[in-house]
Simulated scan of single mutants.
Amino acid sequence: MTLPTSAEGVPDSRRTRSVGIGRAHAKAILLGEHAVVYGAPALALPIPQLTVTASAGWSAQPGDGQGDLSYTVTGSPSRAMVTQASDGLRRLAAEFKTRMGVSGRPYLDVILDGAIPHGRGLGSSAASSRAIAFALADLFGRELDETTAFELVQTAENMAHGRASGVDAMTVGALRPLLFRAGRTQEVRLGCDGLFIVADSGQPGSTREAVELLREGFERRPGARMRFVGRATQLTEEALLALAEGRAGDLGRRMTDYHALLRAASLSTSPIERLVAAALEAGSLGAKITGGGLGGCMIALAPPQRAREVTRRLHEAGAVQTWLVPLKGLDNHAP
C-alpha cells in the first residue's frame, strides 16, 4: 500500500522522508507473570520469529474524522482491539511530538502489518507501539534512544492494560532473554540447550481482567499475596540458576510449578490445560501459561529430539499456531 505524501503544516526542514518504518518483535514470559508488578523477578524471552512492521506517512487530511492521525491494521483484528489500540496510539503519537519537539498538527497515516496475534500474551500491543514509535522517529528524522522508546511504549501500554509492568515494553526490543528485578533489567546467561515451543490456544486472554481477578483474590484471602509473590520469586530464582548452569530439566520443572501457581489463582483455562498436558505427555521438560492468562498461549521447553512430537501433539490438542524458539539462537555471553 502506498502512503500519501502530503506534509501540510510541517516545516520543510522537518520533511526528511515521505515514509518512516519501524519494527519490533513478540515476547513470551518464562516465569514471573503477575508477581513482577509486586516486586518479584521475571524472566522474559524475545521471539524474533514473530515481527510487526509499522509504516508512517503524511496524509493530506485526517482519514477517520478523529483528529490528525489515521490508523490501519492489516488483517482482520476485532473492532474492539483496533479501537483500544487506536486510543493508545494517539496518546503515544502526542507524547512523541511533545518529546521530539514536533510543532504544528501534521496529518499522519500509520499502517501496521505483523504476524503477532492479538490478545495472546505475546506482547502484540507493546510490539506495535514500539514499531510505531520508531516509524515516527524515522519519518520525522529523529534519533530515538532506548530509554525514550521504552517510555513511549509504556504510555500506550498503561492505557491498554492499566498498570503495565514494563516487561513487554523492554522485551519486544531485546535480542536476548532478560531478567527483570526491582525495576532493573539485565541480559540472562544461557547454559541450556533446547527449544521453547509457544502454542496459541486460539482463545484471546485479557491481562487487565487477569490482574483484577488476582487482586480480588488477594483481598479475599489474608496473606495470599505474600504467599503468591514468595512462591513466584522462589521459582523464578531457581529457574534463572538452572538456565545459567545448563540444567534444562530443572528449568522445565520450575516452569510447570509456576503454571500450577497460576492455575491455583484461577488464571488458566480448559484449552490451556489441554495444551500443557499434551506438551508434558509428549516429552516436554516443562510447560506453562505464558502471559496474563485467561486464554492466550502456553510455552513448553522441549529437548530438540522431541520438538517435532511435542509440536504435533500440541496441534492435536487444539493449538491453532505454534512457534519454535531455539535457545541456541539466543545464546550470549552476558555476565
Rank of each mutant, 00 (worst) to 15 (best):
D138A: 10
D138E: 02
D138L: 06
D138H: 08
D138I: 06
L139K: 04
L139I: 12
F140D: 02
F140G: 02
F140L: 13
F140A: 05
F140I: 04
G141I: 07
G141F: 09
G141C: 10
R142N: 02
R142F: 02
R142L: 05
R142H: 05
R142W: 00
E143P: 00
E143N: 05
E143L: 02
E143F: 03
E143M: 03
E143Y: 03
E143Q: 09
L144N: 09
L144W: 11
L144C: 05
L144I: 01
L144V: 05
L144R: 05
D145V: 00
D145L: 03
E146M: 09
T147P: 00
T147N: 09
T147Y: 01
T147A: 13
T147S: 10
T147F: 01
T147M: 03
A149N: 10
F150R: 07
F150V: 08
E151S: 12
E151Y: 01
E151C: 03
E151P: 00
L152V: 12
L152W: 14
V153Q: 03
V153D: 04
V153A: 09
Q154G: 13
Q154M: 15
T155W: 05
A156G: 15
E157A: 12
E157C: 11
E157H: 12
E157M: 15
N158P: 03
N158M: 01
N158Q: 08
M159A: 13
M159C: 05
M159R: 06
M159N: 07
A160P: 01
A160I: 15
A160F: 14
A160Q: 14
A160L: 14
A160K: 02
A160C: 11
A160N: 10
H161E: 00
H161T: 01
H161A: 01
G162W: 13
G162F: 13
G162S: 12
R163G: 01
R163Y: 12
R163A: 12
R163E: 13
A164G: 12
A164N: 05
A164L: 07
A164C: 09
A164K: 02
S165K: 07
S165D: 13
G166Y: 02
G166R: 04
G166K: 04
V167L: 15
V167W: 08
V167A: 08
V167G: 06
V167E: 02
D168P: 10
D168Q: 13
D168V: 07
A169M: 08
A169I: 08
A169F: 07
M170D: 00
T171A: 08
T171N: 10
T171F: 11
V172G: 12
V172R: 07
G173A: 10
A174R: 06
A174N: 06
L175F: 04
L175S: 14
L175G: 15
L175R: 14
L175C: 03
L175D: 15
L175E: 15
R176V: 07
R176A: 02
R176D: 01
R176P: 00
P177F: 12
P177Y: 07
P177K: 11
